[in-house]
């Protein structure tokens, strides 16, 4: 009789409900969905895309390994997928014609200064891939804004090519929406194909690996802010839809701003964070010196995350009220 009870009732302390999620599982789901923009980049930029992706991934993993070894941590964490994601994301934000040595430097900076100096996964303040890109942008400003046309597009002057946003900002030329959706435009490796990024993002949303408030908040606020400007003067400002599909906004909104470590924990915080990013994107794109501002917007809002977490903390029962 006693034995039967023992098998029926398990006595244990909380937590009682366990989830099968783990860091590597989530990370590899993100890697899986990233394969869509990766495939697009390989299709449009061929060998250049493969070269940049491989170098970025190898150097990210290598840097992670060296730092884990130096910090006397478990080196199996190299394969938890987070360094792999950083490598892929960094590669996707780089212009296709970038020198291999620059890619390697970027990957090193991303992992070393963006992640490991803060204490590794979970402790970094900024999105590591964007730290790497920001460093490259500051170190090699010319190389980072030299774009080559996609292989499939027949362009006579194949040396340089404007991105959809750059073309609009500096010469007021709009790229066709069809090209923006499919990805047949100039730009960084992973920012060209809007449709594949959206599919990948939706998969992550469906699996609840990313907070829906962040992409929704960013895209809506960009649409609203740019829409207001467009309504005021449709000659001078671009159509808000154009702003959504051109440049790195979708990649940033779905894959970078949603990074679990560097985004807010609370729903209210997430809204503020997302709207802040959207506002800064429009501000930089329309009034700034650069045609694209998604990277800086996300980095700036990353720095507000600890503050947002503190001030949007839900009230404990009984807290507050009359003082």
């Amino acid at each position: 009789m006693k034995k039967q009870y023992a098998s029926e009732f398990v006595l244990s302390s909380s937590p009682h409900i366990r989830n099968k999620e783990s860091v590597p599982k989530i990370m590899y789901w993100v890697v899986g969905t990233l394969m869509l923009p990766v495939a697009a980049s390989i299709y449009f930029f061929r060998m250049n895309a493969i070269r940049i992706l491989l170098i970025s991934i190898i150097f990210s993993l290598l840097t992670e390994f060296v730092f884990l070894l130096a910090r006397k941590k478990d080196t199996s964490a190299v394969f938890d997928g987070s360094a792999l994601i950083t490598g892929i994301l960094l590669a996707l934000t780089l212009p296709p014609g970038l020198k291999s040595s620059y890619v390697a430097i970027g990957a090193f900076v991303a992992i070393a200064l963006g992640k490991q100096v803060f204490g590794g996964l979970g402790y970094n303040i900024f999105n590591p891939a964007l730290v790497g890109r920001a460093f490259l942008q500051a170190a090699f400003p010319v190389a980072m804004t030299t774009w080559v046309p996609p292989v499939v597009q027949k362009v006579v002057d194949a040396k340089t090519f404007a991105t959809p946003l750059g073309g609009f900002k500096f010469s007021h030329v709009l790229a066709p929406y069809k090209d923006l959706l499919i990805g047949n435009t100039g730009g960084s490796l992973g920012e060209t194909s809007a449709i594949l990024i959206i599919i990948g993002g939706l998969v992550l949303l469906f699996k609840k690996y990313i907070d829906w408030r962040i992409p929704v908040g960013i895209l809506t606020s960009v649409f609203v802010f740019e829409g207001a400007l467009w309504l005021a003067n449709s000659e001078k400002f671009a159509n808000p839809l154009y702003f959504l599909f051109a440049g790195g906004l979708l990649l940033g909104a779905f894959f970078m701003a949603t990074d679990m470590v560097t985004s807010p924990l609370t729903p209210k915080g997430s809204w503020i964070y997302a709207i802040g990013i959207g506002f800064l994107v429009v501000l930089i794109r329309v009034f700034g010196g650069l045609p694209e501002g998604v990277m800086y917007s996300i980095l700036i809002m990353n720095s507000f995350v600890p503050l947002l977490n503190r001030y949007t903390r839900p009230k404990i029962l009984g807290e507050g009220g009359k003082k």
Binding site: K99, S101, I105, A138, A139, F140, P141, A143
Partner: peptide, 18 residues
């Protein structure tokens, strides 16, 4: 050698000091 512009600029100062 390709100059790392950033090292001459203010961010380079902070990175180096750190």
């Amino acid at each position: 050698w390709d100059n790392w512009m950033v090292m001459i600029l203010p961010p380079g100062a902070f990175l180096t000091l750190g």
